[in-house]
Design a protein around this nucleic acid. Sequence first.
DNA 1: TGAAATCCTTAAATAAACCTTAAATGCCCG
DNA 2: CGGGCATTTAAGGTTTATTTAAGGATTTCA
Lengths: 225, 225
Amino acid sequence: MRVLVIEDERRLAGTLADIIEEMGYGSAIRTDGIQGLDEAMTGIYDAIVLDVMLPGMNGFEILRQLRQAKIETPVLMLTARSELADRVEGLNSGADYYLTKPFEIPEFQACLRAVIRRQGQIIPEIKQFDDLSLSLTDGRLSCGSRSLVLSSKEKDIISLLFLNPQVPVSKEIIITKVWGFDSDAGDNNVEAYISFLRKKLTLLGSNVQITAQRRIGYRLEASHS
Amino acid sequence: MRVLVIEDERRLAGTLADIIEEMGYGSAIRTDGIQGLDEAMTGIYDAIVLDVMLPGMNGFEILRQLRQAKIETPVLMLTARSELADRVEGLNSGADYYLTKPFEIPEFQACLRAVIRRQGQIIPEIKQFDDLSLSLTDGRLSCGSRSLVLSSKEKDIISLLFLNPQVPVSKEIIITKVWGFDSDAGDNNVEAYISFLRKKLTLLGSNVQITAQRRIGYRLEASHS
DNA sequence: TGAAATCCTTAAATAAACCTTAAATGCCCG
DNA sequence: CGGGCATTTAAGGTTTATTTAAGGATTTCA
């Protein structure tokens, strides 16, 4: 899943790329209209974030040429101007969403998701903490280039810890959330899984470890910076 | 092309219906949440214009239930509130566009067009992954010069896997999408077909294999490289 | 300091999910 | 009707996840 950002303000472009990668997609940046169009024409992207005001060629023109070349990659347009005419022109020339600057990060994320979702593709949901990332859709735990697949219970448990990494989660909560309200799982079940998870964390060589707080619960901790 | 308007302010609903008909589409109106959901559930519409504040059931809830029932009709949400949290919630619960009242008619038209445009789009007839390609029209699976014909169920299943090559697809989803919502097909049916497909993949000598992720689902994987 | 409580780890046993194959059933078409 | 194909059902085998159990390590606190 790759997203192309065409935006000449480098700081904003970088921020957007970061957000995109955080969401679990790949990203590429072009800061110039002509180059942006070239890159977009490859058709290898799953979405394009496109600024209207650009050096070389403006966003509307890029969009028109793309659509004319039958490249149907979904496009999320950005603009500083909030004029009605702009919004209408953007949408009518083939954009999928129109977002006015300044916008908040969650809104950008939501729009991008909406635009990508229409492709029929499932959006991988990814949680991060320090050098670890967990993909909830396939239960894959990664650290740097290494990664491995968790069993379903392992995934359920560690995703509880990811939820609020600084706050310890009690065994009782883990049992009710993972095994269910009226299961007959005991504390030792949790302990066993925590042990499995710790083994996998060291296998990945991660900075993160699971620490126990007696009588309180477990939490994630990034070993001293 | 038929558009459903779910909006309790009758004057606005009427205006919207007029605009929609002017654009050359058919329209229907529901002014109540429950009835709106009922009507939307028929799945016969090509787009839905959905107000957030409704008697009976609010727009977010309607949207969630629709998506849960696998009704993928594009939805354009309307709201008087312009709160960020609302917009984000709307988009993340499956809306395709979010428009804040009051809006101008041309903008509404442009949004509706953008939302509908995707719908009529031709789904690519040929899907590819690594050295494999699948032709949906004749159900032919090819790898290099070799190729063979799949049965209709085999084709349905593998095309689901092609859609999201990186993400595992659960048996539950496979059953509802291939056998239908209320079929009595069981997990073993899926397993049997996966087995058939695997046999054909090795017959083709493909690089691609179908891997199972316990309790999660199946996905395509290009073996090494 | 020492006993109790809590936590950790590992191996083995059990249960669940998945795989494969063969045979049974249904369906279309000559 | 009967052959050929797609689909479903059934059964047993394989693999993997999960649970259980037992003993060791650590902390708490009297």
